[in-house]
Simulated assay, not measured.
Amino acid sequence: MPAEQIEALIKAALPDATVEMEALVEDNDHWLARVTSDAFSGKSRIQQHKMVFAALGDRMGGELHALQLHTSVPN
C-alpha cells in the first residue's frame, strides 16, 4: 500500500492531522507513520493508535502488513 494512500485514509478520518510517512523496508508494506492531530488531545496513546487503525480499517494485516505509529498532539 503506497504511503500516499495511507496518508489519505488517515486524513479522511482526522482532517487536521499532519502525517509523515517513512518506509521501514522498500516494499510498500512496512511503514512508520508520525501522526499529529488535535483529535488526540486528552486521549491515551492506545486510544490515539486505535483512532489511526480505525481510519485504515481492514487494510491492516491485508494490503498493509506492518505500520509502526508515533502519535502526538500539536505543541
Rank of each mutant, 00 (worst) to 15 (best):
V35K: 11
H30M: 06
D16S: 02
M1Y: 02
H65G: 08
L69P: 14
A39K: 08
V19M: 01
E7N: 03
K43T: 06
K11V: 03
A12D: 13
E20W: 00
S44W: 10
M21G: 00
L67M: 14
L56T: 04
V73P: 01
K43M: 12
A55H: 05
R34K: 14
S72K: 13
L56Q: 08
R59P: 04
V19W: 01
A39M: 02
N75E: 15
R45M: 11
M1F: 04
M60Q: 07
H49W: 07
L67F: 07
S41F: 04
A3M: 02
E63S: 11
E26G: 10
A23K: 11
G62V: 03
E4T: 12
I10H: 03
D27N: 15
M60F: 06
V52S: 11
G42W: 07
A33L: 08
P15F: 04
Q68I: 12
K11P: 01
V19S: 00
V25P: 02
A3H: 03
W31R: 00
A54K: 11
T36L: 08
G57P: 03
V19I: 00
D27H: 09
L32P: 03
A3T: 00
T71K: 15
A39D: 09
E7I: 10
E26S: 15
V52C: 10
P2A: 02
S44L: 10
R34F: 04
Q5R: 13
E22L: 05
L69W: 12
S41M: 07
L32Q: 13
D29M: 14
T18W: 01
V19N: 00
P2I: 10
H30A: 07
R34T: 14
P2M: 04
E20N: 00
V73M: 05
G62R: 12
D58E: 13
H70M: 14
A55P: 04
A23Y: 08
F53L: 04
D27M: 11
I10T: 10
E63P: 02
S72V: 07
V25D: 12
A33D: 07
L69C: 13
A12I: 04
A54P: 00
L32G: 05
G62E: 09
L32N: 08
H49T: 12
V73G: 02
V52P: 13
A8T: 07
W31K: 02
A54Q: 08
A55D: 05
Q5L: 13
I6Q: 06
I10Y: 06
I10M: 09
A12W: 02
G42T: 07
